[in-house]
Design a protein around this nucleic acid. Structure first.
Lengths: 230, 230
DNA sequence: CGTAAAAGTTCACCTTAAGTTCTATGGACG
DNA sequence: CGTCCATAGAACTTAAGGTGAACTTTTACG
């Protein structure tokens, strides 16, 4: 899986992060591996990223994170240790064997939502889904809903899909939102504001656009992601 | 992941919140880090937010929250500990570490695939995505591809979507598959076998169904999931 | 409720640190 | 003897960090 050099670099990064709390820069790595040019480091880093051992933010200084160590993790079920909120706890519990960082989060599926016509509650949690971190905007609360109906089908949202919603009370034109109409019907529609009114458009010609007064519509969240299983 | 300054500031905020119960103001942080201008703090805060370590409400006084600490896990980045299989950690660990199951796996994105017309390589890994375990069939290798083009649009597969593929060389009628045509074109199409020939149907009337001889088509995998970010 | 103080934001300017890219070099190898 | 590939080197681009000042929004208080 890894060449000797790649492994060496991976172990170096891991050791430095543990020692300093801060990942090494390219220059520091180059010195530590006795190379004279950091372009070699660049290639090694790229290789490690491709193989899924580290994650990084391109062009960002010291933005490297070790995701797993060789021999490590690759199973579908993994136990995650979530730190209560603060208190870093670097070392894993003793009987843990392998560690992998997964860039994802479990979100509650709060129920079903009728995509086209109205109703179906945002009520109790039925279960949870893992959602890739890249879908989440960093700040803001998120939850998931199961789509029922075909009214958003032309937007590529099918019956049974899981949609990921970011809680927010405002929306821009063209956003797909979860809106509460008349205080009770929760629907998933495309949001458009026009001369004082709000239009909720379905993405299916069989459904009519509903134009409502400002006070009849309460935006509850915006669609930020979609997950479908076949 | 963090530079020294960023880490320093993060630890300061964390310590202050623990000590005072209230996050420090920009001026207080500036003094604590021995800076003469608070605009530097602003930039560090922005960097910490980008990297997902803190969450904040813009313009609000002292509205900063530490979401996670380096090495520690919370929010979008979660450290997963793979328990050997048996014994999980039954007893509540010393400093209130919560254990959560994340039912997901990081899959490599192997490149782009043209959904409609032909070609685009399954070549090197560009990056990784977390994929919910419910998508994975337990056994079998999986990988991900970025969809390019609109040929599968009526199946709810849009340009830019990430599709999750399970490696397999056979397919049932109606499956959506990654197929290698004539040994070089990789396409995402619906698979149908008819009287000794294989039909690869696009889900877009603008594209024609291609009917090919058995030996011209090699099934490489089957679509098992889809992930879309807005 | 209005206003002043406090807190957060933005900009311009600068220096240094860090990451990226491209081309050249030199050895291993068939 | 040419190809492959890791290393080197340097040029280049961008990010990080620092400062000071003006400006806007919140928040607290009389």
């Amino acid at each position: 899986m890894l060449t000797r050099k790649q492994l060496e670099l991976l172990e170096l990064i891991d050791a430095r992060v543990k020692r300093d709390g801060v990942p090494p820069s390219f220059d520091e790595m180059k010195d530590a591996l006795n190379l004279r040019s950091k372009s070699g480091i660049h290639r090694l880093i790229t290789a490690l990223e491709e193989r899924g051992f580290i994650r990084r933010l391109p062009h960002r200084a010291r933005a490297i994170e070790v995701v797993r160590m060789p021999g490590g993790a690759d199973a579908a079920h993994v136990a995650t240790v979530i730190d209560g909120g603060a208190q870093a706890q670097p070392q894993a519990p003793r009987n843990a064997i392998k560690v992998q960082q997964i860039h994802a989060l479990e979100l509650p599926v709060m129920g079903r939502i009728a995509a086209g016509t109205p109703i179906e509650a945002i009520s109790e949690i039925s279960h949870h889904v893992a959602v890739p971190g890249s879908m989440l905007s960093g700040n803001g609360e998120h939850y998931a809903l199961e789509v029922h109906g075909d009214s958003m089908i032309e937007a590529g949202i099918n019956d049974g899909d899981i949609v990921v919603i970011r809680e927010q009370t405002t929306a821009d034109n063209g956003d797909i939102v979860v809106a509460l109409v008349e205080g009770l019907e929760a629907t998933l529609k495309r949001f458009r504001r026009m001369r004082g009114m709000i239009a909720l458009e379905a993405a299916n010609p069989a459904y009519e656009t509903r134009v409502l007064r400002d006070d009849q519509v309460k935006v509850q969240g915006r669609l930020v992601g979609l997950i479908r299983s076949y």
